[in-house]
Design a protein around this nucleic acid. Structure first.
Lengths: 219, 219
DNA sequence: CAGACTTAATTGTTTTTTGCAAATAACATT
DNA sequence: AATGTTATTTGCAAAAAACAATTAAGTCTG
């Protein structure tokens, strides 16, 4: 039962989402080697059986190499495979997607964030990968705490509302959103903390401990 | 950038669901070689880079080898990886789950269907795999056509209702279920076809062509 | 063959959720 | 103090879901 066949190449790729200027964006990297040298592509690399505990660890390694720290939210998306997707041979790519607040990326030299609806031409099957990642993100956003991971630890209700609208790509009623989100135990008020500014101060919220422990947020 | 490292073993495993005697069940296979020879396990095998177009093709090959035909519904679940999950070494397993009507399996010699809540001890990390597969199935069942693939091509509303209850594991209101499902374009009446029996005949339904083309049902 | 029995399907009512519009609150600025 | 702007709450209508009961269409029994 040992494989008498040559084994496929095993790699990981990552779809790193952020929101900047009210638009959902992806962080791409410029390829430094052939094939497709010079093109923008999803950050990725081969899985190192020696040093990676599993593919998720490999994804974290790739992400740290790209942005310098761990992503607050990381989840496996899908595994792509086949002979045609990479000219180097039959390959398997385990793809992860991550959500990263723009505030953590600001000033990061390597980070080039492209709007998901205006991406440059992508090599391999990265176009399909991106399509599936966006689909998954939008699908999950509606009924989960996911988009909140695109914000820093403290945020106002209106900021959260906008982030949901931007990830989903549609309008959401303010009052309904507020009511629904508060009924879901996703976020909690931070007592006596407000965002002050030119006008009425806004209550600050944070992700509930329930959500945080579920995802083991790293920041 | 070519991998200087030894590559992981790449395999596929499958979680094959069916419903018999009103219970959600999994089809397991008895292992014929070490490790864990003799134990029941999820049907699986190594990916053959030569003969499999991709991992989904490999999963179909495994399923055909087990039950003799293609599963009506097949979907990738998750990819499990690590050094500890298989004593033979660092491995990556792309896991698929499938739904198969019991009517197609009846009389199939190899098919041993265990209730998902009364499984024998499983080798490797198959216990975790099953847990995740059941979770996914239940999660998707509520708002999709998925459970209908556990029925044969023609079914009554009550049969469908029961299948949904069994996969989800909870009661569903009859009238609401009927209304919701009919409003979703998932199924359609078969004109003038009824299931007759001891009592009032029941209208027969089938999956709508929309759903069928989306999933390319093979039976 | 009438009535009892059983499953199928519909109907009506109540409760909950959602969508929309407006009103009220809390500041800074002039 | 009046005004402008953003935050938050309130009220109501519409839609969806849950619940309860009724009607429909057969078989079976005496």
């Amino acid at each position: 039962m040992e494989p008498a066949y040559p084994q496929p190449l095993v790699m990981v790729d990552t779809a790193l989402f952020t929101i900047r200027d009210e638009r959902l964006r992806l962080i791409l990297t410029r390829r430094k080697e052939p094939p497709f040298e010079g093109l923008f592509a999803l950050p990725g690399g081969f899985v190192h059986a020696q040093e990676d505990a599993d593919t998720e660890a490999a994804a974290r390694r790739v992400i740290r190499g790209k942005i310098g720290f761990d992503a607050p939210y990381l989840e496996q998306l899908f595994t792509f495979s086949g002979a045609a997707r990479d000219p180097r041979g039959w390959s398997v790519s385990v793809v992860y997607y991550a959500l990263i607040p723009w505030s953590l990326l600001e000033g990061n030299s390597a980070a080039e964030a492209f709007p998901v609806d205006a991406l440059p031409p992508l090599p391999f099957d990265h176009g399909q990968i991106v399509a599936r990642a966006v689909e998954r993100l939008r699908g999950k956003a509606t009924y989960s705490s996911l988009p909140a991971f695109l914000l820093s630890a403290e945020f106002t209700m209106n900021e959260l509302h906008r982030i949901y609208e931007q990830t989903i790509g549609a309008r959401l009623d303010k009052a309904s959103f507020r009511h629904k989100i508060l009924g879901q135990d996703i976020i909690e008020e931070i007592p006596n903390r407000f965002r002050t500014g030119a006008h009425r101060p806004a209550q600050l919220y944070r992700l509930s401990s329930k959500v945080l422990t579920a995802f083991e947020r790293k920041i």
